[in-house]
């Protein structure tokens, strides 16, 4: 398969896993809500300026209480608490039951990623290429050897910073086998722009063999 296989493959709006999909639907909901609120505020502004006597029947205090409290308080409360629950869902790896999670160490350094699999004996260390099983939650343990980097595979889930001296965890998941683009999203020096990597999601039954070199994976 040519390398161009992952072209345009960085879109968070084209999710390929449950984590990314749930965030994408949150985005679409917020987008339509924002359109409505924007239209409302701008509509009121234009009406108040252009239409004589518009809105004069409503007292000033009422204007402020309706628009400044009654409108935003329920919207923000609903959104914020939904987002809390959503965050918990993502922290669990976008699965409701605690099923088995595969741990992967992702070590960032100027300017490449090295992936290793502590729980898979005999697995090789891969540079800029991450193999994961499809349909299973993967926990990335992000670490750094030099400056701060950030591990991000937009189609599979959120991002996590690799901070020197810390190891941070992020759960991602690919629903289907395939190739997904990954990128470093924290500025890490002159090589930052070129710090891409590729994620290959394999069928569960092929995964272990690919890792231990039993199956050719090109």
């Amino acid at each position: 398969m040519p390398l161009g296989g992952c072209s345009g493959d960085f879109s968070a709006l084209d999710p390929a896993g449950r984590s990314a999909a749930s965030i994408a639907s949150l985005w679409w909901a917020m987008l339509w809500g924002s359109f409505a609120l924007f239209a409302l505020v701008l509509g009121l502004f234009l009406a108040a300026v252009l239409i004589p006597r518009f809105g004069r029947g409503v007292s000033q205090k009422r204007w402020i209480i309706l628009g400044g409290l009654v409108l935003p308080v329920p919207v923000l409360t609903g959104l914020t608490f939904y987002a809390f629950a959503h965050g918990e869902f993502l922290l669990r790896g976008a699965v409701s039951e605690t099923d088995e999670v595969l741990e992967v160490r992702a070590v960032g350094r100027m300017w490449q990623w090295q992936f290793s699999y502590p729980s898979v004996p005999g697995s090789a260390v891969h540079t800029d290429l991450l193999h994961i099983p499809a349909g299973r939650t993967v926990e990335i343990i992000a670490e750094s050897e030099d400056v701060i980097h950030s591990f991000w595979v937009p189609r599979l889930g959120g991002k996590i910073d690799a901070v020197p001296g810390h190891s941070n965890r992020l759960r991602i998941r690919a629903d289907q086998p395939g190739r997904y683009g990954g990128i470093c999203s924290e500025y890490c020096g002159t090589g930052h722009a070129g710090m891409h990597f590729e994620v290959q999601a394999h069928r569960q039954e092929d995964f272990r063999e690919i890792l231990t070199g039993g199956l050719h994976h090109d």
Partner: peptide, 28 residues
């Protein structure tokens, strides 16, 4: 008018980014 138009959009995207799950995607 320019202020209302532009700032309201900025405020709305600000609320979006305040939500942790969305920010995990949009950050940086």
């Amino acid at each position: 008018f320019g202020f209302f138009f532009v700032f309201v959009i900025g405020g709305l995207t600000g609320v979006m980014l305040a939500m942790v799950p969305f920010d995990w995607q949009a950050h940086d």
